[in-house]
Design a protein around this nucleic acid. Structure first.
Length: 507
RNA sequence: GGUCCCUUCGUCUAGUGGUUAGGACACAAGGUUUUCAUCCUUGAAACAGGAGUUCGAUUCUCCUAGGGACUACCA
């Protein structure tokens, strides 16, 4: 067998915002392609015009771009195998549908949706299952059961029709899935799927998918597990079209499940659990569905957490950059079982990636946020602060609540800390401390500390009690980095003014 | 209902015909940090059940149960 160039595609339907299950499929395709020096193709599968959603295609582009998955060929990027949008490939498919009719692999059917619905309803009432298949196709209205004349007549009269694939009888169809191994289906359990419809002159997913994968020379089809049941149809289609030799290898990825309860992850789970289910914000009529980006996640953290959902490198490494993922990825190590999404671990990944960022990069990000809050600060000052507080947060957006006191005096004091630390001789001591602090000439952490320590000793108070009260005065609560460093950075005047304010306002 | 897929700590997972079944998140305890967070140490926590094969099965086979996907002129 000659080795073909690895070419994989991510083929979403623009029916709404891409959700993280789709993002993970894209990621695995991307990793597989890059790992093998192949191409990552983005194809838009918009053969169902009724479900088209404005902006969904752009959303896919933006999402992949944000996550750093560079598309080699696609609608925007172009390429030799275009167009990359199925609605623009309309003219291509009919020919293959006709070919299937001619070779006897498919037939025209005239049953209306209403008629079929009725048949389904009766079948259901009798607790039977209705399927348009070998058992009843001769009783239905199609070019197999009708005379050639009648077929021609109906078509000439402009009656809508559909082309169905004629699933052969009792044939075992076997596939060797890259993640699931050997899976076999018998065609007797399969129905005659619609592959083309006259109403809009468009193929359905199955035909379009096979034709495009073939024409685009796709070598591996990596997609979600929900597609596993249609594999036999696809294989039969390749066979019928005589494309078996170049049929891609399949890999069906496990699903991402709800954090708790039953079923696969849905938008509602995100609302309920307070975590994003989409890469980017998506505007809804009644609000906005939260995106990872806007929720403060780094793209590398999202890639990392998604990659580890259903895949692992076989080592104990858990933190990966996208390049490291490419390096370590292997489709054989993808799991078969569905993986529950864990919002806590998602945060942890972000925190880990945040801690790995250098202070300069973080300070730039934080500075943007400061500007939004109307705070203007020297970038080197911001960088110093970021260095001190970055290990205390999961997100850049939490930097503010951990460091606001560097930029403005606390407007309130945590009542719990007040109750615990601001009592007895402490308020009086703090008042006296102002005079002592005034005497500090060289305003650096060590000297400030020395003065306070001396004063504490002189008054015979508890060190911890005083330091915590001092902290309360400077930051408004019982948190934050090293207190003496805070005082130093705040400067003499500001520190003293905050102590004075505390003495006046608490109590 | 039918077809197909899946099943190791609460969760993500590693792993083997003989292991003290390993790691991570979360949780708990202790230490460091005179705060909070980080960090360190420790702890609790799993092979769905039943048969079979075998000297021996979590690992192989079968059955059962549970979970999941699909079952459209949607993808």
């Amino acid at each position: 067998m000659t080795a073909r160039k690895v070419r994989v595609r991510f083929a979403p339907s623009p029916t709404g915002p891409l959700h993280i299950g789709g993002v993970r499929t894209a990621l695995f395709n991307y990793l597989f392609a890059k790992k093998h020096g192949g191409d990552f193709i983005l194809r838009i599968e918009d053969t169902d015009s009724t479900r088209f959603v404005e902006g969904a295609e752009e959303y896919v582009n933006d999402s992949l771009a944000w996550l750093g998955m560079a598309v080699d060929e696609g609608v925007k990027e172009g390429g030799e195998f275009g167009p990359y949008k199925q609605s623009e490939r309309k003219d291509i498919y009919k020919k293959y549908a006709d070919e299937l009719i001619e070779s006897g692999w498919a037939y025209y059917a005239f049953d209306t949706p209403a008629e079929l619905d009725a048949l389904r309803a009766t079948a259901e009432a009798e607790k039977r299952n209705f399927a348009y298949d070998m058992h009843n196709r001769m009783q239905l209205k199609n070019s197999l059961s009708l005379s050639d004349d009648e077929v021609k007549q109906r078509m000439d009269a402009g009656e809508p029709w559909v082309i169905r694939f004629k699933m052969p009888e009792n044939t075992d169809v076997q596939t060797n899935d890259m993640v699931r191994g050997s899976v076999t289906f018998n065609t007797n359990t399969l129905d005659d799927k619609v592959i083309f419809k006259s109403a809009d002159q468009l193929p359905t997913y199955h035909l379009a998918n096979i034709v495009d994968d073939h024409l685009m020379e796709i070598s591996h089809v990596i997609r979600g597990e929900e597609w596993l049941p249609s594999v036999p149809l696809h294989i039969m289609l390749y066979k019928a079209l005589k494309w078996e030799d170049t049929m891609p290898t399949f890999a069906h990825l496990p699903l991402i499940l709800k954090p708790t309860g039953k079923g696969k992850l849905s938008k509602r789970d995100g609302d309920k659990g307070g975590f994003p289910v989409f890469p980017l914000n998506w505007q809804l009529e009644d609000g906005v569905a939260a995106g990872y980006k806007e929720s403060g996640y780094f793209p590398e953290a999202v890639n990392n957490l998604l990659a580890l959902l259903g895949w692992n490198p076989g080592t104990e490494q858990e933190l990966f950059s996208i390049d490291e993922l490419v390096e370590s990825f292997s489709i054989e190590r993808v799991n078969k079982s569905g993986a529950r999404f864990d919002p806590d671990k998602a945060k942890w990944f972000n925190q880990q990636h945040l801690m790995r960022k250098d202070n300069e990069e973080l300070s730039l990000l934080f500075n943007d946020e400061l500007n939004e809050r109307g705070v203007v600060a020297d970038i080197s000052f911001v960088e110093q602060i970021v260095a001190m507080v970055k290990e205390r947060v999961n997100f850049v957006s939490e930097l503010w609540e951990q460091s606001f006191f560097f930029f403005e005096a606390p407007s309130e004091y945590d009542p719990k800390v007040v109750k615990k630390r601001w009592k007895g001789d402490v308020p009086a001591f703090m008042g006296d401390l102002v005079t002592e602090l005034e005497k500090v000439d060289n305003w650096v952490a060590d000297d400030i500390k020395a003065v306070i320590a001396a004063q504490i000793e002189a008054k015979g108070l508890g060190f911890g009690l005083v330091m915590n009260a001092f902290r309360l005065a400077l930051v408004g609560g019982g948190f934050g980095p090293d207190l003496m460093v805070i005082a130093e950075m705040l400067g003499k005047d500001e520190t003293i003014s905050r102590v004075k304010a505390a003495v006046e306002n608490i109590g």
